[in-house]
């Protein structure tokens, strides 16, 4: 199978590249922490893609994410909103709500039956409700993100954290620790606080089931559980959740006009 389109998602925290064949099957992908030199990093990853997945002659490169203007060789630049919508819609094929949980931004997209973005909302100003919130608070607890997720999962009860502001939540956390509250309960409380903020954003847009979470933060089971509880319905995890921006960009490359579903031939390779 040959590469028919390549998507590059130059996000705030990670840079992702995905190569699809003409049927929309994921052939090759790579994810790296974002370097400050976006252009060089993207070029290097595209070269890796060409050597590992085959040259893919004439395969269009579509760039998305904050660094989309810096990706050399891109024939199109599209926002990550459209790309996540395309990426999720290719799997769902109908109306749905996408929670794109990124490192610095959280976005909620409402997709119509034809895959069009009917409305979207993004977090304002602060890091509340984004990956950054979890990163900062986990670091304060001295936990890696995986351990933070595990701690929240293991919690028997949930500490009440009312602030969704990162700075305030941090100081609330300090006083909880000072009172001897178990780390697990605090971790669960923090996940809940973040979920509250995302849910508020989602309600602004209006929820159309099913709900799917994409972006790197969506990989955390505790986050999805907290979101499910807050939104009172299941929050699913699409395949390649963290890569969906890049996959969506490549889908735009395959078919720039239609947001319609791509027939996925065969099982995509696990990433």
């Amino acid at each position: 199978m040959t590469v028919a389109a390549i998507g590059v998602d130059a996000g705030s925290t990670t840079l992702k590249v995905a190569a699809l064949d003409a049927a929309g099957t994921l052939l090759w992908s790579r994810l790296e922490p974002a370097s400050p030199r976006t252009a060089e990093q993207a070029t290097a990853l595209l070269a890796a893609c060409a050597s590992e997945a085959g040259p893919g002659k004439g395969a269009p490169i579509v760039a998305t994410g904050y660094g989309r203007d810096l990706v050399l060789g891109a024939v199109r630049r599209v926002t990550e909103i459209t790309c996540h919508a395309r990426g999720v819609f290719a799997q769902v094929g109908g109306a749905c709500t996408v929670l794109d949980l990124g490192g610095q931004d959280t976005k909620v997209l409402a997709l119509g039956a034809s895959g069009r973005v009917l409305d979207f909302a993004m977090n304002d100003r602060c890091a509340a409700g984004t990956g950054r919130f979890l990163e900062v608070t986990a670091a304060r607890l001295g936990l890696s993100l995986e351990a933070f997720d595990a701690a929240a999962t293991a919690a028997h009860h949930e500490a009440v954290i009312s602030s969704t502001c990162t700075v305030f939540a941090e100081s609330e956390m300090v006083s909880l620790l000072a009172r001897g509250t178990p780390v697990e309960a605090i971790a669960a409380g923090l996940h809940r606080a973040m979920a509250r903020r995302v849910a508020a954003l989602a309600r602004q847009v209006g929820i159309r089931p099913p709900i799917l979470a994409s972006g790197g933060v969506a990989l955390s089971g505790s986050v999805r559980r907290a979101l499910s509880r807050e939104l009172d319905q299941d929050v699913g995890l699409p395949r390649h959740a963290q890569l969906l921006g890049a996959v969506g960009a490549a889908l735009v490359g395959l078919d720039p006009s239609s947001p319609g579903p791509i027939r996925v031939a065969g099982r995509p390779r696990p990433v």
């Binding site: 599209v78 926002t79 909103i81 009917l118």
Partner: peptide, 13 residues
């Protein structure tokens, strides 16, 4: 840049 993305996303949609 975030505001720019919002405008662009609106136009795309």
């Amino acid at each position: 840049a975030q505001a720019d993305t919002r405008v662009e996303a609106l136009l795309e949609s």
